[in-house]
Design a protein around this nucleic acid. Structure first.
Length: 104
DNA sequence: TATTTGACGATTT
DNA sequence: CAAATCGCCAAAT
């Protein structure tokens, strides 16, 4: 794509995450070609220009734990969304071995 | 303008 | 196996 912007690729990858599944920042980073740029991915979601098109709630850190400064209304809202999609969230933590999108 | 922090992760010692 | 360091991109100070 013309938009070789790192962020844009991140948004695209996050958007590809199927419902009922979650992905880690590292997975997305690797997906866009920067396996060590997980933090940059975090920044991408932080600026999240389109919170509706970019389901940040499906993105968690490597431990499967939700972020602390979630921008939609708090981790509680994010947890609620994940459970709504069929993801078992425990104390803001997701079972990556069950819900981690390996097919990204 | 330069330095540090920030939704993180992997690699190396 | 555990701890420390490097890498990543952008924004905030």
């Amino acid at each position: 794509m013309d938009d070789n912007s790192f962020f844009k690729s991140v948004y695209a990858a996050v958007r590809m995450i199927p419902s009922g599944m979650v992905a880690t920042y590292g997975d997305i980073a690797a997906k866009v070609g920067r396996p060590r740029a997980a933090q940059a991915v975090g920044w991408a979601l932080h600026v999240n220009p389109e919170p509706v098109v970019t389901p940040c709630h499906r993105v968690v850190n490597r431990f499967g734990k939700l972020a602390k400064n979630f921008g939609f209304g708090g981790m509680e809202e994010q947890q609620r969304l994940l459970e709504l999609e069929g993801v078992e969230v425990i104390d803001g933590t997701v079972d990556l071995k069950k819900y981690r999108c390996k097919k990204l």
